[in-house]
Every structure is written in C-alpha cells, then in structure tokens.
Write a protein that binds this DNA or RNA. Structure first.
Length: 827
RNA sequence: GCCGGGAUGGCGGAAUCGGUAGACGCGGCGGACUCAAAAUCCGCUUCCUGCAAAGGAGUGAGGGUUCGAGUCCCUCUCCCGGCACCA
C-alpha cells in the first residue's frame, strides 16, 4: 500500500504468486487425454537450449519470449496451445566444459538442467513441464538410436571411407555444416582433412526434395535463401575426356569432369585434377612424378583455411600426362592444382581459360593456350581476350556448333557427347552427405555392432537403448576413435545375428541428430514403448509455428527436414515437412556488438529480473526493435516498459478502488474518444502480434494507455478491462493479477479472452486533412470523415495561410484524397 | 564475386495502397508535488532563420517517374547475414 491507500506494483510478489499457481493448477500442462483430443490444437515450438553452466543468456530469453508471446496470443484467441521446452544437453560443448572444470558430464548436466529449469520458470514461459525432453536421458536417446536404426535398415545410413573434416582441437570429425569458412564452428580451429571411415546419412538423396519444398514453406526469406545456397544446385554436364598414352592414343582411362558450361568445350585447352584425385597417379609420367608427389605432399599439409584462401595466387604442377579434348580431338595437358577441390563435382575440371576467370588466371600464369569460343553479339570474334568472357553470346571456333547461342549450345553439345558415349547432362549439388560419427564421449552411442561374419549389424530395437557407460577417462585423443574404444568390457559383445563375438561401434552420434527429431517426441513423451504415437503425432504435427535463431539455417533446420522426410518415406509419419511456419528472430546488440564474454558487454538476466520483474524484462526485450531484425539493448531503455506496466497496474487498481468505494462512475460507459482508440488498438495489436510486430504492438498499447490517462483523467472498467488480455502475452503475470483484481476467477489464459474488434467503433467522425499548395503543407482542416471535395475545398480556402499562398496564382488542378489531404496545384 | 536484408532526430525505432516524416520509448530541457531528494505527474524536444507569425532544409549519395516519393524505377556508396577457387 502507498499513502493513497492504493496498492503498489511489486513485480516479484506478483510473479511468484502466479508461477506457483500455474504450477499447482497445471495451467500450462497437458494430460495424455488432452493431447489426444485437443479442441483447436496449435503447436508453438522454440529451439530447445543447450543447458550451459552460465545459465540462460539474454539471447535465449529473447528467443523464448518471442515464441511465448506468440503462443500466448493464440491461446487467448481460443486455441489449445502446446508449448514445450527441453534440453539439448549432449555434445562437445558440454563435454569440453566438463573437461575444463573436471566434473563428469553425468554429474554436471543435471545441475545445469536444474538451474535452467529454475530460470525458465522465472521468465514466465507457458511451458508444459510434463512433456519435456532431455537428450541425454536414455529414455530419449533410446529413440534417437531407433531413428538411426530405421535409416540404417533403409540404406540411408552407411559407413564410408573417405576424406573427412577433422578438428585437431575437438579431436573429432565434423559435418560439412559444422565447418565455417574452414574453421570448426565450436572452437574456430582450422579444420584438417583426414581419411577415416565414418557413418553418413544420405541427405544428398533428398537434395532436390529439400530444395523444391522450400518454395512451399512459410519461412523467413533469409532462412530459405540460406538453405538454397547451401544445397547449391547447378545444372550442367558430366563429360569424359580420354586419357592418352605416351604414343598419343586413347587409353581405357577417362577423366570425368563436371561443368556448367559444356558449350565451351572447344575452348578446353587443359585439364586440372584435384591434388588428391585418384587418377593423378595414373596420368603422371615418370619425369614429372617427383614434382607431382612433392606438390601433393605440400597440399596435404595445409588445413582447410590455408587451402581454400581465394585471394592467394593459384598454384599447380603439370603431371606430364595428356587427355584428348573430344570436341577438338587435340591432346591437352593434365595438371593438378590447388584451385580444384576433390569434394565438389568429380574433383576434376576441363579448363576453359577464355571463359572462366580462374582458368584464365591460371593459364596466364603458366602460359597455357587461351582460345575464344564465345563472342558477344556484334563483337569481333578475332579480338584476343584480355580477360575471361563470361557473358552471353554465340559460339565461335566450335566447328559445327559455330554461331549457335550459348544456351542452345549447351544442350546441343551435351546431346552430341551423349551420342559419342562421352558425357551426359547432370545436376550437381553442393550439399554433402551428413557425417554423423563423432570420436567423442558425450553422445548417444551409434547402435551398430561389427561382426566378422555378418559385417555391421544394427542393434535390434528391443535391445535399445545402447546405454552410454559412465567412463571417468573420457578425454578425447588424436587416435581417430572415441574414448569408448578404451572400454573393452563395454564394446565387447556378441553379434545379434550369428551370436559370435563382436564389437560395438565406439563412436557416438552428432548432437544434431538428437535435435533433428526432438519436436516429434515432445507430444509423445508419455509413451515409453514407442517413439511416436500415430494419433497424437498426427494431431499436433507438423509444427504450427517455430521461432528461433537463424544460426541453424543449414544445420538443425536442414537436418530435421531431412529426418522428417526419411521417417515419412519409411512410414512413420504422414507429412514430410516438420514446420509449417518458421520465423528467424534477430540478434540483440549491445554497445555496438553481439553480446559476448570476450567483449564484456553481456547482460546477466537474473539481477534485472530481480529488480524489474520478468514481465518488464520480457516487455522491454520485445520493445527493443522489430523482432525479426533484433535490437539494440540500451540499459536505460528498460524504464520505459517498466513505467508502462506500473501505470497499467495503477490504472486497473484505480478502477477496482473506485468500484469498491461504490463510485458508480467507475462502471460508466467508456468515453467516446477512448473507445474509438481502444478499437483501433485492438485492430492493430490483433494484426501485428501474429506477424511478430511486437515493438509496434507495445507502442500501440502505450499509446492507448496515454489516451486513457490523458490529462490525469480517471478510467472506467470498460476502458481498462479489454486492455489486460492484450498486455497478457508480454506481461502474463501482471495480466493474471489484474484480471483477478477485476473480479475474474479463472486464469486469463483459460478461455478466449482476447477482446473483440468492432469496426464501427473504430471509425473516426472527424479527420484532419492536410492542405498542400504545390505539394507543400500550408495548413490543416478538420472535416467530417469522408467529407466531399467541395466541402473540404471550401474549408481549405478559408484557411488564412492557405489563402495567402493562393493569392495571385492560378489553381490548375486540385487533388483530393478523402481523409488524407487536399493539394492545390498552382502555376 | 553471387544471394538475402538494411541505411530515417542526440539514441532505439514508427510511418497500411505513393498522401501532414519522426508514432512509441530512452535521453535532454522546463514545470508541479516535496523542507529536500527519490518516486510520480504535466509540458516541450528533427535541424536552420525568426520575439512571434511564419519560412527554408530534411529519410546513405546522385538521377528519374508523379500534383505528391522514406515508400516506385535507374546508377552508386556503406553496413549486417548466407555462400564462395563450387567448375
């Protein structure tokens, strides 16, 4: 109480009260029966956090609050909203931290999870704590392993030998998606190439489907484009160039190249193989062998960053070998060079220096022939090329294809090579298969047993989970195998097929496998005998709204699409896209940079919530800027939303106090202007919240409150009550408190309490119309809404300042936009 | 280099279909209440000229379309994100 006898807003008290009540009454939780037959299901998903030792950071809270606001809005509109949360607790991140502090992850993670749980409750998310997942719980990873087994049986998981990305610091292989510009995404160490047999998921089989479906998804543009770029489809041809023997005749061997410019084949004056290409040995002549092998050794030593630098001069050596250009019939030199990569296309190219910048640079440096085979329209084809010509044009120096347009040339030359048996059209993708093996400890063991007689065998489903044993010495090493390979009593087993002695796979799977299906599990956590209940899964999925960070655009969001498609093809799901709608939120910036420990600009949420309350912190975060673009965290800015919520509290209690005192005026009809503003606000907020326009919605609510309290006037119930549900998504505890104070017994979130918009009540009777003379505002007039031009013009001409500007000039034209402006065009 | 998103007061940011640029908030200035302070409340706050009335300029730069452009078109600069010797 303050000295007026009215209550003061103490956020901590209000929030504790409602968090306890939501918990006790199960306000946000679903029973299995409710999950089975919801009235109007809406699945609101957010990206489950990795439970770090530091606790929730502002970025987490920003992400969760945005999703929670959206979920709560839909609930207030009468939907049955399922909004689960969980913990992505396996992985290198936790393991490295455990190593650093010398605590076993099995002891560390539960503490972090407990702390995160406390913090997540404190921020007031509408989480269903009865349906959480923890990826490190055997009851969860049993089914992660089950997913692997399904893919293995379908031939979508396979063990392959080949070049892999090896992080020398994390001491494990990484998927392509986890290598950012040649660096490990976890620790920024330059990644090396190693040859190791690994488990792969054949995501490339799904490349075209992953690409095509993007068109149909309601996703943030930036995320869709990131996936498109990552899949990287290019159309072209795979062409074959016969390798020549010392006498210049064709041998059996052929170099396969992928090109997007088959039309330029007559200009292919040399070939380049990647240094690691398997044919290098065969084409190298004895007199070039020493040089070639030295070059290969040099390339092997380089990490990915050094190798893929594009600003350095290209290097390479001649192998001494030749191929025949099937178009010209001429022998052309075969080189190896750093600018051709083994893991794209076929690892070999036909070099067309006349029409490819890289080939031009290389040919110039090593004095290799440059031939023009494309000429732009109206250009002299005999002009020597001073740089590679990439543009459109017609073919020249191309035999019977001369004068053909390049586009027509592409198909004509492919068709001809196909007849010759030397090529065909081909589509190539940048996307690589997903390497899921990790030579680490903290993950679900890959459920495979190696038997000398039967080969790799999947662990039978009834034997799942393959439990990760507690191992004290879990430090990774450079051996290329997991620490589990040190635990003989664990990996020694018998073959499930023949019963002979056999050995378990000792690698664990990628953390991204854990998160590739967690959203499928949430509504199914009540079942321990199956991963997915068909009825419940069909009811709740695909996810209605997914909100999260764009840093997972090509990681989690690509993998989970693939796993969903695969599970659909295997009959476990009846949909193939997991998320109907995905929105990427922006980043919070403070002092000009992303918050990071090294920059020292991190905001620790706990003390702020302590001082201002979760409601204020939530509202402030949502008010910072457009949610999809992020915002600039200014420490002083929190006072705006704090003052707003205090005023809301005060205004509602003013009404309650007036009613209690028997003041009939408190129940009076709303003021006309206020009611109009109310309905305009309802319209605006109802449109903007589902579009994630949180900052403008809060601004509209502030504006409304300013109208209600204008000049210090007293509010009436009809003006205040409809505002409460509109602030509820942002400030749920305060909304509950005030809803109760206004006499409602049930939770504001139980029931469709969103206020109804009445268009008739939002209409303005009079409007301000700007009066312009030649496009410059010279005054304003007040007219009835939809007033006709005659009336408006008369009023405008009566306006003193307007009259002055119309003196002595001729009005040539009058433009009238009802309710907006009147423009006199004079000359 | 290619793809996507941006650039608006001292600051964060608004502006529906091309129609009064700067809503809302922070900060600042002034005032009320107070012995005083905090809290709260009220008013002002794009820049320039002006006592005022008013006038001029103004949404990264330059051009264009239009009665009218932050918004549409062309050219350019810079910033953020994705991809990148990708053949």
């Amino acid at each position: 109480m303050d000295n007026d006898g009215r209550r003061t807003y103490v956020p901590g008290d209000v929030e504790r009260k409602w968090q306890e009540r939501w918990e006790a009454e199960g306000t946000n939780a679903f029973t299995t029966d409710e999950l089975r037959s919801p009235e109007n299901p809406f699945y609101q998903l957010m990206m489950f956090p990795y439970p770090s030792a530091e606790g929730l950071h502002v970025g987490n809270i920003y992400a969760f609050t945005g999703a929670d606001v959206h979920g709560r809005f839909h609930r207030l509109q009468g939907k049955t909203v399922f909004e689960p949360i969980g913990f992505d607790a396996f992985g290198i991140h936790s393991e490295n931290f455990a190593l650093k502090v010398g605590v076993h992850p099995m002891d560390l993670i539960p503490k972090n999870v407990a702390n995160f749980t406390r913090q997540l409750r404190r921020i007031g998310g509408m989480f269903d704590w009865d349906h959480t997942v923890d990826t490190t719980d055997p009851a969860y990873y049993k089914w992660t392993q089950w997913v692997f087994v399904q893919l293995f049986r379908a031939g979508l998981a396979e063990r392959r030998d080949g070049a892999v990305n090896w992080c020398p610091s994390c001491k494990t292989v990484l998927a392509n998606e986890q290598v950012i510009a040649g660096l490990c995404e976890r620790c920024d160490t330059p990644v090396e190439q190693r040859n190791l047999p690994q488990w792969y998921f054949r995501i490339t089989d799904y490349a075209q489907r992953l690409l095509d479906n993007l068109e149909t998804l309601d996703w943030s543009e930036t995320t869709r484009k990131a996936q498109q770029n990552w899949i990287g489809r290019s159309e072209g041809g795979e062409l074959r160039f016969p390798v020549l023997d010392a006498g210049g005749s064709d041998t059996e061997a052929q170099v396969h190249v992928f090109t997007t410019r088959p039309d330029t084949i007559f200009g292919a004056t040399y070939m380049v193989l990647a240094p690691e290409h398997p044919l290098v040995d065969a084409v190298t002549t004895p007199d070039h062998r020493a040089e070639v092998e030295a070059y290969q050794a040099e390339m092997r030593k380089l990490d990915l960053v050094a190798r893929q630098k594009t600003d350095k001069e290209k290097t390479g050596v001649f192998t001494g070998g030749f191929c025949r250009n099937p178009a010209t019939g001429e022998p052309i030199q075969v080189w190896i060079a750093d600018y051709v990569l083994m893991d794209y296309g076929t690892g070999a190219i036909m070099a067309v220096p006349g029409h490819d910048e890289r080939d031009f640079e290389f040919a110039t440096k090593f004095e290799l022939p440059i031939v023009r085979v494309v000429a732009p329209e109206d250009a002299d084809a005999s002009t020597p090329l001073e740089e590679a010509y990439i543009g459109p044009g017609r073919l020249v120096n191309s035999g019977r294809f001369d004068d053909m347009d390049v586009e027509a040339g592409k198909s004509a030359i492919i068709a001809w090579l196909e007849d010759e048996g030397l090529g065909e059209s081909r589509i190539n993708y940048r996307l690589h298969d997903w390497c899921i093996s990790r030579q680490r400890y903290w993950g679900p063991p890959i459920p495979v047993i190696y038997c000398d007689a039967c080969g790799p065998v999947a662990v039978p489903e009834e034997d799942l989970p393959v439990v990760l044993p507690r191992v004290e010495d879990f430090k990774p090493d450079d051996s290329g195998v997991s620490p589990l390979a040190r635990v003989a009593e664990w990996y020694e087993t018998t073959c499930p097929e023949c019963g002979e002695a056999a050995r378990r796979e000792t690698d664990v799977s990628d953390t991204f496998l854990d998160s590739s299906w967690y959203f499928l599990r949430y509504p199914n956590t009540d079942f321990d005998d199956k991963a997915l209940d068909a009825g419940i899964t069909g009811t709740w999925l695909p996810v209605d709204s997914y909100i999260g960070g764009n840093e997972h655009a090509v990681l989690h969001l690509m993998y989970s699409r693939f796993i969903t498609m695969a599970l659909k093809d295997l009959g476990h799901l009846d949909f193939e896209e997991p998320y109907k709608q995905f929105r990427a939120h922006g980043l919070i910036i403070r002092e000009g940079a992303k918050m990071s420990k090294s920059k020292g600009n991190v905001i620790v949420p706990d003390p702020i919530i302590e001082e201002f309350g979760a409601d204020t912190f939530r509202t402030y975060l949502m008010f910072l800027g457009p949610y999809e673009e992020g915002g600039d965290y200014q420490d002083e800015g929190i006072y705006g939303p704090f003052g707003f919520l205090k005023r809301v509290f005060d205004t509602a209690h003013q009404v309650v106090a007036a009613e209690a005192a028997g003041d009939a005026a408190a129940d009076a009809a709303p003021d006309g202007d206020v009611e109009r503003k109310l309905h305009q606000t309802i319209r605006q907020v109802s449109e903007q919240v589902p579009a994630l326009g949180f900052n403008t919605s809060i601004a509209a609510l502030m504006e409304y409150l300013n109208t209600v309290r204008a000049g210090g006037r007293s509010a009436v119930r009809a003006e205040v009550e409809p505002m409460i549900p509109m602030i509820a998504p942002f400030a749920p505890h305060l909304a509950e408190e005030l809803w109760e104070a206004l006499g409602h017994e049930a939770s504001i979130f139980d029931g469709a309490n969103w206020p109804e918009f009445d268009a008739a009540k939002a209409v303005e009777n009079t409007v301000t119309v700007a009066v312009q003379v030649n496009g410059k505002v010279r005054g304003t007039i007040e007219v009835a809404a939809e007033a006709d031009q005659e009336r408006a013009e008369a009023l405008a001409r009566a306006e003193e300042n307007v009259t002055r500007h119309l003196e002595g000039v001729t009005v040539r034209r009058v433009i009238y936009v009802p309710n907006r402006l009147l423009n006199f065009v004079v000359g």
